[in-house]
Simulated assay, not measured.
Amino acid sequence: MTIDNAVQLEGRINAHRRLLVELVSVVAAIPEARAALVSMARDSETVSDHEEDPGIEPDAAFAAQQIADDEIRAILKAAMARLETRI
């Protein structure tokens, strides 16, 4: 049985994400760390409209950065939710 490379990659990424969510939830139990993580969830590394002109059609770098920001927030949200279930 051969597993497609995309499926294998997706499985590995999902495993890394699950592990990262668990680790972040453990770290978030430390009050100082939790404050830093909440702050990180509020921040955005995506360039705002007024900071840089992406042109008529933003290039892939802008889209990739937005996807990364969204994923960071999703991981932090999942980690905080997991922490809340333990408190």
Rank of each mutant, 00 (worst) to 15 (best):
residue 30 I to N: 11
residue 42 R to L: 08
residue 75 I to S: 02
residue 12 R to E: 15
residue 22 E to C: 07
residue 30 I to K: 08
residue 82 R to F: 09
residue 19 L to A: 08
residue 72 I to F: 08
residue 42 R to A: 11
residue 6 A to F: 06
residue 38 V to C: 09
residue 20 L to K: 01
residue 9 L to I: 03
residue 69 D to E: 04
residue 85 T to D: 04
residue 17 R to E: 06
residue 12 R to L: 12
residue 77 K to M: 07
residue 73 R to S: 07
residue 78 A to R: 06
residue 46 T to D: 14
residue 24 V to A: 02
residue 7 V to Q: 13
residue 52 E to S: 10
residue 31 P to F: 07
residue 35 A to E: 09
residue 37 L to V: 00
residue 67 I to W: 15
residue 47 V to D: 12
residue 17 R to L: 09
residue 9 L to S: 13
residue 27 V to S: 06
residue 13 I to T: 05
residue 1 M to C: 08
residue 28 A to Y: 10
residue 19 L to H: 11
residue 10 E to W: 01
residue 15 A to S: 08
residue 3 I to G: 04
residue 60 A to Q: 13
residue 37 L to H: 01
residue 21 V to N: 01
residue 53 D to I: 02
residue 74 A to L: 02
residue 70 D to N: 15
residue 54 P to A: 03
residue 59 D to K: 05
residue 13 I to K: 02
residue 10 E to T: 05
residue 80 M to H: 05
residue 21 V to S: 05
residue 31 P to M: 04
residue 86 R to K: 05
residue 83 L to C: 01
residue 40 M to A: 12
residue 33 A to H: 10
residue 7 V to E: 13
residue 9 L to T: 05
residue 60 A to G: 10
residue 47 V to S: 13
residue 8 Q to K: 09
residue 12 R to D: 14
residue 43 D to E: 11
residue 7 V to P: 10
